[in-house]
């Protein structure tokens, strides 16, 4: 279960990461493991759903673009890439990272790619939350003059 949760976490991070940052960190890490495609990158869409009133029955809100692929390293690990948008290279890197995270290089990949990506996303989120907080209304009641 923990292994599954960990994998969910890194795949979710890879899906949301900005493509240019993922590419830069991947290139900096400088590994190029041999692999073959199980499913070459393909661009498609998924239907995003919402709920009536936020909590009720589901309804179809609209689609979003998505790119997916699957590959196998020569060492045997299978990696899946499911990333937002239409970027085949991003999907490929995501699948490679997913595969490497299941093998002996996991720690190195985590340090070089996942940790900085996670930190950057968390920082960007915090900055927005801080800006939002500065626009929070502080109500005060005017005290009228008499007595």
């Amino acid at each position: 279960m923990t292994a599954e949760n960990n994998r969910r976490a890194w795949m979710s991070l890879l899906a949301k990461a900005p493509a240019d940052r993922l590419l830069a960190l991947w290139q900096e890490h400088g590994v190029a493991p041999a692999f073959h495609w199980l499913r070459a990158p393909e661009i498609g869409a998924t239907m995003v759903r919402g709920r009536l009133g936020g909590t009720g029955a589901p309804f179809n809100l609209g689609e979003m673009t998505l790119t997916r692929c699957a590959l196998q390293l020569e060492s045997g690990e299978v990696g899946h890439g499911y990333v937002q948008g239409r970027d085949k290279q991003k999907a490929e890197i995501a699948a490679l990272v997913d595969a490497l995270m299941q093998g002996p290089e996991a720690e190195a990949v985590e340090t070089a790619i996942l940790t900085p990506l996670g930190d950057e996303l968390a920082k960007a989120k915090t900055v927005r939350a801080e800006k939002a907080a500065a626009t929070k209304v502080d109500f005060f009641t005017m005290v009228r003059g008499e007595d």
Binding site: G44, A45, T46, M47, G54, P58
Partner: peptide, 17 residues
Amino acid sequence: LPRFGASAPVETADMAC
């Protein structure tokens, strides 16, 4: 676009507002 599936309903209660 080929459709890869449908998402789980989004949790708007967890929105980063």
